[in-house]
Design a protein around this nucleic acid. Structure first.
Length: 710
DNA sequence: TTCCAGACGTTTTTT
DNA sequence: ACGTCTGGAA
C-alpha cells in the first residue's frame, strides 16, 4: 500500500504579508515577539487594531492552527472590523479562528455545555429591559406594602448586574455604590435570589449570565482543561475596559503554562468604571502574570504635535497610570483653541459657523465631530445646526432591536425556540385585547403545568377566564395553531404578522406605517436564517445586525445611508475609537465637564481620561468651547468658569479665543456676494482660523460673531 | 384594563 | 423645564 502524506494547508501559505511595509519598529516587535504573557500599552491613534490584526495573521502564517486562537473584543463592530482585515491579509477566512465579543463567545460555549451549569442549550437571551421587567414582577411579591423609598427596578437591576460583573456580593455592592439603600438589603438580596431562580426556571440568560456561567463552566476542571488546551493564543482588545468577571475568565482560560495571552489597551482611556470596568486589571497585569513582556506603542499617527502636547499635559495630572508620552511624526499645525462663549447658544453659533467656514474650505462634513460629556448638552447645537441647514447625525438613541414592535415579533419567535420562556409568552399574550398582566399570568400558570405549553394551547386546555380575556385567548390560540412544525423563522414571523400583528399596529400606533416597514425589514432579515435559535442569538447579541448584512437597512431612528455627508454629534463615550479632522468639544466648563457629581464620587481622574479620549479624537483642529453661563435644570442661569481640565493646562498648550458679537445688523446682501468671491475660489493655502472666522458669513445671521485675540 | 395626575430624576453604555 | 414612570381610581 502506498502512503501519501497530506500536508496541512495553512503551512503552505506563501509569505505574502509584507509586515515591514505596514508596521513601525515597535509594532513589528509586538507582532513577532508578543508570545507568552504580553501587555501592550497602546496610546490613541497608535494603530493597536492594526497590530492585533497583523499579530493574528502572523500566527496563522507561521503555522498556528486558527482553532487555537481566540480574539476577544467589546463590540461586534470591532470584532467584525478585525476579522475582516485578517481575512483580507490572508486572502481567505482562517477556518476555526474564533473572534468576537466576550458575550458572543460565551454564548457559543454555553450552547454546547449549558447543561453543566443548569441550562438547556436552547436558552433565550434577554436584554436589560427584559431583566427589569422580571425584577419588577418580583418586587411586587417581595415588597407587597408600597414603600415610597424602596429602590426602583432599574436600581435593583444595576445592583445585581454590577455585583455580578465586579464579582462581589450584593451586600458589598450596596455598601459601596448605594449606601442609602442599606436598610433594604435583605429585600434586595431576596429579589436578586428570586431573579436568578426565575431565569433558570424559564431557561433565560441575561447578558451578564453569558459571562458568569461561562466562568462557572471553566471552574470545572475538565472543561477548563479542554478550553485552555484549545485556546493557546488569547488576544484581548480594549483591556482597560474589562471588569473583574472578564478578568477571571481570561485568567482561567490562560491557566495552562502553554497559553499565550496578549492584552492590548490604554489605561488612560479607561472610561467605563460605572459598569464595573477595573482600571486595576491593566495596572495590575504585572502582578498576575509574573513573567510578562511589556510593549509600548507611543507613536501617534492621528493628531498634530500640538494636540498631542495638550493631551500629554492634561493626563499628567492623573496619578493612576503607566508612564508614557505620545509622540508623532505628523507635521506641526495650529494650536488647539480654547473658545470662550457667552452661553450655550453662542457656543452653538460658534460651532455652526466654524463648521460652515470649514466646509467652505473644502472639508467634508464627515470630517467634523461635535463631542460632549452628556447627551442633553447637545440640545442647542442640534437646534442651531437645523436652523442653518447643516446635515448632522447624532449617534446613539434607540436601537433597531430594542423597539417595542421588534421586540414583540421577537417574543413570538422566542416561544417556539424555548417553550419555557415565560417572559416571551406573557409579552405575546398581553398583545391581545382583553388580556393584561393579570390574565396573562393566569393563562401562563395553567399552560406551564404541562410539558409542552404549545400543545396545551392547541389542545383544548380548560381555562376559567372572564369574557373579555377569553376572547383575546381565543384569538391567541388561533395564531399559535397556524404555526406548524418545520416552518422557517421568516415563515413564522410572517404568519404572525399577516394574521395579527399588522392589524394590532394599525389599531394601537399612529405611526404604524414606519413600524410596518421595520417589521418587514425584520422578516427579510429572518429570511437569511434556517434556524430560529441562530436568528435569535444574532438579534440579541448584535445590535448592528441591520447594517451588517444589508447596508440599506437602517433603524427607523437612523435616516440616510453612509454616503450622506453629515457632521457627527456624539457623547465622548460613544466616540471612542473614532476620529475626525476637526473636533469640537462643547461645555468644557466646571460642573459640566467634569460633572459636579464627579467630585462627590471621586471620579475626577476618570473624567480626565474622558477629556483625554475626547481631545485625542482630533486629527488636525481641536476646539474646546466654554460657555460662560448656562441654564440649570430648573430655570435660572448659572455662571460657569473654565473646566479644571483647562485651568490646569499650561497656557502655552492652546490659543485662547474670545468671541465678539457684531452689535449692528449690517445688510447682508453685498457682504454675501463679497464672501462668495473670497471663499469659492480654490484655496492654494488654507486661510488661518482667525481670517476664515471673520470672513465667513451666511444667510441665517441673527448674531454675527467676530473673533478677537485676547 | 386603561387612563390620568402627580412624583421623580436628570452621566456615561455594550452585550 | 420637562419627559417618563407609577400608582390609584374608573
Amino acid at each position: 500500500m502506498k502512503v501519501y502524506n497530506l500536508k496541512k494547508s495553512q503551512n503552505n501559505i506563501k509569505h505574502k504579508i509584507d509586515y515591514k511595509a505596514e508596521l513601525n519598529e515597535q509594532q513589528l516587535d509586538v507582532v513577532f515577539n508578543g508570545d507568552g504573557a504580553s501587555l501592550v500599552l497602546a496610546g490613541p491613534g497608535s494603530g493597536k487594531t492594526r497590530v492585533l490584526v497583523y499579530r493574528v495573521a502572523c500566527l496563522i502564517e507561521n503555522g498556528v492552527n486558527p482553532q487555537n486562537i481566540l480574539l476577544l473584543t467589546f463590540t461586534n463592530k470591532a470584532a467584525r472590523n478585525m476579522l475582516n482585515r485578517v481575512e483580507t491579509l490572508l486572502q481567505s477566512y482562517p477556518k476555526g479562528l474564533m473572534g468576537g465579543t466576550f458575550h458572543h463567545v460565551g454564548n457559543l460555549i454555553l450552547r454546547q455545555h449549558g447543561k453543566e451549569v443548569g441550562f438547556d442549550n436552547n436558552f433565550s437571551i434577554i436584554d436589560n429591559e427584559d431583566s427589569r421587567q422580571i425584577i419588577k414582577d418580583i418586587i411586587v411579591h417581595v415588597v407587597p406594602k408600597k414603600d415610597k423609598h424602596f429602590p426602583k427596578s432599574n436600581v435593583i437591576f444595576s445592583t445585581i448586574s454590577f455585583a455580578k460583573n465586579a464579582t462581589c456580593s450584593i451586600k458589598e455592592c450596596i455598601k459601596e455604590k448605594f449606601p442609602y439603600y442599606s436598610k433594604f438589603l435583605n429585600e434586595i438580596e431576596k429579589i436578586a435570589d428570586l431573579y436568578e431562580k426565575k431565569k433558570i426556571k424559564a431557561n433565560l440568560l441575561d447578558f451578564d449570565d453569558l459571562l458568569y456561567y461561562w466562568v462557572k463552566l471553566l471552574e470545572k476542571d475538565s472543561l477548563r482543561g479542554h478550553y485552555a488546551n484549545r485556546f493557546k493564543y488569547v488576544l484581548v482588545d480594549e483591556f482597560q475596559d474589562t471588569n473583574k468577571l472578564q478578568f477571571n475568565l481570561i485568567k482561567k482560560l490562560t491557566d495552562g503554562q502553554r497559553n499565550n495571552i496578549m492584552v492590548v489597551g490604554d489605561d488612560c482611556q479607561s472610561i467605563y468604571s460605572f459598569r464595573a470596568a477595573e482600571i486595576k486589571n491593566i495596572l495590575d497585569f504585572p502582578k498576575h502574570y509574573g513573567n510578562y513582556k511589556k510593549f509600548k506603542l507611543e507613536s501617534n499617527y492621528r493628531s498634530t504635535p500640538e494636540i498631542l502636547n495638550l493631551i500629554n499635559c492634561s493626563i499628567k495630572n492623573n496619578k493612576q497610570q503607566f508612564d508614557k508620552k505620545l509622540k508623532t511624526p505628523n507635521k506641526s499645525s495650529d494650536k488647539p483653541a480654547v473658545v470662550h462663549c457667552k452661553d450655550t447658544s453662542q457656543e452653538a453659533e460658534f460651532v455652526c459657523q466654524r463648521i460652515l467656514d470649514t466646509k467652505e474650505e473644502g472639508i467634508s462634513y464627515n470630517d467634523m465631530g461635535v463631542l460632549f460629556r452628556a447627551g442633553y448638552q447637545s440640545a442647542n447645537i442640534e437646534l442651531e445646526l437645523t436652523k442653518r441647514g447643516i446635515p448632522f447625525k447624532k449617534r446613539g438613541g434607540l436601537r433597531f432591536f430594542e423597539q417595542a414592535h421588534i421586540k414583540d415579533m421577537t417574543a413570538f419567535l422566542k416561544i417556539f425556540n424555548n417553550l419555557k420562556d415565560e417572559l416571551a409568552w406573557k409579552r405575546v399574550l398581553c398583545l391581545f385585547e382583553g388580556i393584561g398582566p393579570a390574565s396573562a399570568n393566569n393563562i401562563w400558570t395553567e399552560i406551564a403545568k404541562t410539558d409542552n405549553p404549545i400543545n396545551a394551547v392547541n389542545s383544548n386546555v380548560s381555562l376559567k377566564l372572564p369574557n373579555k380575556p377569553l376572547r383575546g385567548w381565543r384569538e391567541f390560540k388561533g395564531n399559535i395553531s397556524k404555526i406548524k412544525d418545520g416552518m422557517l423563522p421568516s415563515d413564522i414571523a410572517n404568519t404572525f404578522f399577516e394574521n395579527f400583528y399588522k392589524d394590532y399596529l394599525k389599531e394601537n400606533h399612529p405611526n404604524f406605517k414606519e413600524r410596518i416597514l421595520d417589521v418587514n425589514q425584520y422578516i427579510n432579515l429572518a429570511d437569511q436564517y434556517q434556524d430560529i435559535n441562530n436568528f435569535l442569538e444574532d438579534i440579541m447579541l448584535d445590535a448592528d445586525l441591520t447594517n451588517k448584512e444589508n447596508p440599506s437597512l437602517v433603524g427607523s431612528d437612523g435616516v440616510g445611508k453612509s454616503e450622506d455627508e453629515a457632521v457627527i454629534l456624539s457623547t465622548i463615550h460613544q466616540a471612542k475609537g473614532l476620529e475626525w479632522r476637526n473636533v469640537f468639544v462643547i461645555s468644557v466648563a466646571e460642573e459640566r465637564f467634569p460633572l459636579s457629581r464627579a467630585y462627590m464620587d471621586d471620579t475626577v481622574e476618570e473624567e480626565r481620561r474622558l477629556f483625554y479620549v475626547a481631545c485625542s479624537r482630533a486629527k488636525k483642529e481641536l476646539y474646546l468651547c466654554v460657555p460662560m453661563e448656562d441654564y440649570t435644570f430648573w430655570g435660572g442661569y448659572q455662571i460657569l468658569k473654565d473646566s479644571t481640565f483647562i485651568q490646569e493646562l499650561p497656557k502655552s498648550c492652546y490659543e485662547e479665543w474670545t468671541l465678539r458679537e457684531e452689535d449692528n445688523f449690517t445688510p447682508i446682501s453685498n457682504k454675501v456676494e463679497e464672501d462668495k468671491e473670497l471663499t469659492i475660489k480654490p484655496t492654494t493655502h488654507r486661510r488661518n482660523k482667525k481670517e476664515s472666522l471673520k470672513n465667513g458669513k451666511f444667510k441665517n445671521i441673527l448674531l454675527k460673531i467676530g473673533m478677537v485675540k485676547k
